[in-house]
């Protein structure tokens, strides 16, 4: 690792301290609304930290999902809480005040503190020169069909994990469908500024998503990031009061949500017929297949994220 310039050093220290401070004030905040805002700021600062750690892929994902979409989902949930007027956490905490609770809390906190100290202690025993599987990835990247090692790992070497991750997202959607039944208390009003912003930003976000998707084979980007940006565009539209037509909410919606997982199943099973392994791409068409998979996954991820938001904030009981 090259030596840090003084400026970078100051930046890192500030980022680290800022992260700790934001985390602490988010957790200890008595006001839920403020806690959510601090959570979003934490996510943004965290993505800066990832940039400094030279992990642009994670930085993008953190900004889009950790800060953006999670923040929107938290806000939408907040609007549904019965005490959203005050958004005060004290009412929620009253259950904790039982006899002996303070002693237990002290015990728990000191245990956690000791554990944190041990984590810091153990970090000094990690091997200083860490390469992980970088060498193995570097030797096989020629056969992977893409040049970005992160995409190669996600869509080829460990594509099976990514497939299961897509199912996790699908599971979340199924789950929200079950719990997101009650109508929201505060209805969303459409505002002119928001309308204009949405109509300007949505096309741009779609372009950004397409760019992220395309660049993913060579550099930082890929299906999850692109899907998150696409989802953010959808959330913006929903916030501005746009609602899809009812006819689209049934089968067309469901087919599009399933596009990513279905494409994966198809690509995974096809090699089995010719005696190869699950998800084993033919070497010469690996690149094309990965791009196709990514397009399908992006659309599904974007739509699923939108649907999660729509379900959480559904004001007239729409059910995708």
């Amino acid at each position: 690792m090259e030596t840090l310039t003084e400026l970078q050093w100051i930046f890192d220290v500030l980022t680290g301290c800022g992260l700790l401070w934001l985390a602490w004030s988010c957790l200890s905040s008595r006001n839920l609304h403020r806690a959510v805002v601090q959570f979003v700021s934490f996510g943004l600062l965290m993505s800066l930290a990832w940039v400094r750690l030279e992990a642009p892929d994670i930085a993008l994902a953190e900004a889009a999902i950790g800060a953006g979409l999670t923040g929107a989902l938290l806000m939408a949930s907040l609007a549904r809480l019965p005490l959203s007027g005050s958004a005060d956490i004290r009412a929620l905490k009253s259950a904790e005040r039982i006899a002996g609770a303070r002693l237990l809390q002290l015990l728990r906190n000191s245990l956690l503190f000791a554990f944190a100290l041990f984590i810091i202690y153990a970090i000094f025993f990690l091997p200083p020169e860490f390469s992980g599987l970088r060498e193995e990835v570097a030797t096989e990247i020629e056969n992977a069909g893409v040049r970005n090692p992160v995409t190669a790992v996600l869509l080829n070497f460990r594509g099976y994990d990514t497939f299961l991750e897509l199912l996790v997202l699908l599971g979340a959607l199924f789950g929200v469908r079950i719990v997101g039944m009650q109508p929201v208390r505060t209805s969303m009003t459409s505002e002119p500024v928001l309308n204009i912003l949405a109509s300007l930003l949505t096309p741009i976000l779609i372009l950004v998503a397409a760019y992220l998707l395309w660049i993913g084979t060579d550099g930082a980007g890929g299906a999850f990031q692109a899907g998150a940006v696409l989802g953010a565009g959808g959330v913006l539209l929903l916030l501005a009061g746009w609602r899809p037509a009812r006819a689209l909410m049934a089968s067309p919606f469901r087919s599009l949500v399933l596009l990513g997982p279905l494409a994966f199943v198809f690509v995974a099973v096809l090699p089995l017929l010719s005696g190869r392994a699950l998800l084993q791409y033919p070497p010469d068409s690996a690149g094309t297949l990965i791009v196709l998979l990514e397009i399908a996954a992006t659309l599904s991820i974007g739509l699923t994220l939108c649907a999660l938001f729509l379900n959480v904030s559904a004001d007239d009981g729409e059910q995708p």
């Binding site: 460990r158 994990d161 599971g171 979340a172 199924f174 789950g175 079950i178 719990v179 039944m181």
Partner: peptide, 23 residues
């Protein structure tokens, strides 16, 4: 180990959603 994590995650999420099935 990581694949096990993803599988555990999917197990947990699906199980939680099923728990809430009746609403």
């Amino acid at each position: 180990l990581f694949n096990m994590y993803v599988a555990l995650e999917l197990t947990g999420l699906a199980a939680v959603a099923l728990t809430a099935l009746t609403g």
